[in-house]
Design a protein around this nucleic acid. Sequence first.
DNA 1: CTGAAAGCGCTAACAA
DNA 2: TTGTTAGCGCTTTCAG
Lengths: 352, 352
Amino acid sequence: MAEGTEDAARPDRRPRHASILDVAALAGVSPSTVSRSLRGHETVAAATRRRVAEAARELAYTVSPHASGLASGRTLSVGVVVPFVTRWFYANAVAGAHDALREAGFDVLLYHLGDAAARDRFFDRMPLARRVDAVLTLSLPLTDEHTLALRALDMPLVTLGARLDGVSSVRVDDVAAARNAVRHLLHQGHRDIVMITTRQDDEGFGFVAGPDRVQGYRQALAAAGLDARGDVVEAGTYGIEGGAEAMARIMERPRLPTAVLAEYDEVAIGAVRTLRRSSVPVPGRISVVGIDDHEMASVLDLTTVAQPVREQGAIAARLLLDQLDGGAAGPVDVVVPTRLVVRSSTGPPQGA
Amino acid sequence: MAEGTEDAARPDRRPRHASILDVAALAGVSPSTVSRSLRGHETVAAATRRRVAEAARELAYTVSPHASGLASGRTLSVGVVVPFVTRWFYANAVAGAHDALREAGFDVLLYHLGDAAARDRFFDRMPLARRVDAVLTLSLPLTDEHTLALRALDMPLVTLGARLDGVSSVRVDDVAAARNAVRHLLHQGHRDIVMITTRQDDEGFGFVAGPDRVQGYRQALAAAGLDARGDVVEAGTYGIEGGAEAMARIMERPRLPTAVLAEYDEVAIGAVRTLRRSSVPVPGRISVVGIDDHEMASVLDLTTVAQPVREQGAIAARLLLDQLDGGAAGPVDVVVPTRLVVRSSTGPPQGA
DNA sequence: CTGAAAGCGCTAACAA
DNA sequence: TTGTTAGCGCTTTCAG
């Protein structure tokens, strides 16, 4: 078989990418030198490096991640595992992490665990095994089994918006966030404050910060000398619809509370929708406060406790990269600050 | 060197994954049989298949995607390229595509091209080259250069929300969508209808459906015997803030229009925010209609033209998978239906 | 500073 | 139906 066989002779094959051998040949060096040179490795003579770079450009050479990964054991990609990409919080966290990771030269494999089927498939096949160098999980409520599977991967792991023993994490202080929201209401004179939480789904797969926020709510009540049990209404579903439905139930009561704390902004938004449709003035009759500072909070003039989501994604990525660099003395727990944003969905209670 | 060297003897190595050889040994067959068997390939004796499966389970074996990819030339992953994951439309489209792709056994590599730096890096390094088997681009306004780079990949390609010569696509009829929105306003008696569009960013990287929607707006006007140029206001930025800002400019006019068509719901939402803050009644004084049926549209009671986003993502994934299966006679252009959703942000003009 | 050689862990003809 | 034999395209000791 003649070496000179032209492309025309193998019409069915994908047009072959230039390989490291082609670059080596063109640059007049060995493949190993090309490899080293292209990765800025070791000491490669400047002149050589230049020749290699030029040859690579000329041939539009890109390394094969598979070949490289197989040979080196590094994949240059990280897995980002998220329960719902479509929700504001997650989408922003993913964006923040993605940008930081790509900038560092890593690819991002997205694993969206929106439904039970996807979840099961994920945790029992563990598709991450040799596919990524590190894993970032976003606010995933993990069972012991899940946790085990993740640890078994034995690779750098960071959680965002949740804590896991011995694992680095980035989050806000959810207890404090809720406490501050309630304190704001208390300062305005509210004494009858209901909290709306959302239910985790059948597999216990809900928003992981809920319990902490409930705790913060209760702490604030207790500190004000009120009944520390509070008045927690659990919505039957999550998000806007959950908030709307829970608020509807609250409105069936003979006596309305003067204020409502929602577990997160989407819930608050749903609650506001219900109130509006029933022509209950906000904050005239009922004040509503959320947590997150969702992009729609400003549109609805919702008072909320803001947390920097995209930044948390970026920080999480950074932690991951640090671990990959071999740094990292031990797991760290980065707690980023939140801040009360007062808008016009809260005000003094009627008659105050 | 003894073959029996125990793990303890290489304490620094990552705990080695079982390899196909281990499985083969345990099952008492050759590696190729394991390979075939595990992929449900060809005719492998049922008994053998069972033994292999058991051995694999016992050793918690997972194929190395890199090794497999290198050997077979298939990566079992697809690249999803999106301008902004954080926006409702894209997040939902990504979710839809992701779920369908994962279900088919493909991994999803996310490329978020949010800023110019990410964009440039992407198009000139083309990180997709040997990394994925197919590419899905979401509403990406592509320059000729971009298009060329994408085509040079020479792999299955599908676009969502945009068309590209010779490439399969999934989208709505944006011209018709806008036309219907305007028709609704015309039916209500409006004659003075402004359209707000958003600007593409400096690199021309904006929402790609804009021009079609403007065209639909103009067609509807023309059909009603009105000035077909219409009255188009271009916002200085995109999304909610763009809509808010454009609406503010419109309000400086001596005479307000009676209705506004926003290029998409987020723009409409921004416009509504401005109107509310200025206490201009909607729809009493000005009607507002959007396009998309963003999840917040119901909260704000926004009349809009709904499009099924998640479904489009799923359809796009399906097209990609079909192409990978070698099917696909030629490029197809799937146009999914839209539907006017009348809520209370539109109504007859004052005095009508 | 550079090259030669030996894999990384699979898959895919080709035999048997 | 299964096994044997070559690679896939890199990286990485180890020599030089």
